[in-house]
């Protein structure tokens, strides 16, 4: 990505990518140093300016690069996918590159291991399933029970993926509430998910 350039800025984000060790100050310093070493070895030194923004998903922080963004041939964002987009919207004349592959909304199940927990579908049904989300955690997002690929509590796609339906049914049985799953429910409204197209959220009292 940065092969053609010899002077770039690498911008980290102090938000979510900092707490998940993907694009915080430490990762910015390591990537910048690694890039400089690699390019020095090639005999084509690369200047990498290291910057941090409070967040890259709010225009007031993006604005802090106003006086420096055009001093570089390209800008690399170490935020989630929102970062390079907010940056390129604010500074149309500059080239922006992503440096992390943003994958999912999740949490750290143990130190250094993250798992997906939320699919952002916009109509939450976690309470039907005793706090476990089959939309995000079932490989097929099934809402009515496990499929034939469930074996010994694991999903057929990988031995590292639990069958969330196995967990849901087990918990319902333990708590004597298996009958909850017999209830008929209206079809889920997928218009609030990606199926309804790109989404926008408005808090009217915050809009000027």
């Amino acid at each position: 990505m940065v092969q053609p350039y010899d002077n770039v800025m690498l911008v980290g984000c102090k938000g979510c990518v900092t707490v998940c060790n993907a694009g915080g100050l430490k990762e910015v310093q390591i990537l910048a140093s690694t890039l400089r070493i690699a390019r020095k070895k090639e005999g084509r030194p690369l200047k990498v300016e290291e910057r941090m923004l409070e967040r890259q998903c709010d225009p007031e922080y993006i604005e802090q690069l106003r006086d420096s963004f055009d001093q570089y041939q390209a800008v690399l964002s170490m935020a989630c996918g929102v970062g390079p987009q907010f940056l390129s919207e604010a500074y149309p004349g500059q080239k922006f590159f992503p440096t992390v592959n943003t994958r999912f909304m999740g949490g750290a199940v143990s130190h250094g291991i993250w798992e997906e927990r939320c699919a952002g579908c916009g109509t939450c049904i976690i309470h039907y399933f005793d706090g476990m989300c089959p939309i995000a955690r079932c490989s097929k997002s099934l809402q009515h029970g496990p499929c034939g690929g469930s074996a010994k509590g694991k999903c057929e796609i990988s031995k590292d993926v639990v069958c969330i339906w196995d967990m849901i049914v087990r918990k319902k049985m333990e708590q004597g509430r298996l009958d909850d799953l017999r209830q008929y429910r209206a079809a889920k409204d997928w218009r609030t998910a990606r199926d309804g197209g790109p989404r926008r959220s408005t808090r009217e009292e915050l809009v000027k």
Binding site: K26, Q29, I30, S33, T34, R36, I37, K40
Partner: peptide, 10 residues
């Protein structure tokens, strides 16, 4: 820290 090592090589 990894940064000490990288900086030395850099």
């Amino acid at each position: 820290d990894i940064l000490h090592l990288l900086r030395a090589i850099e």
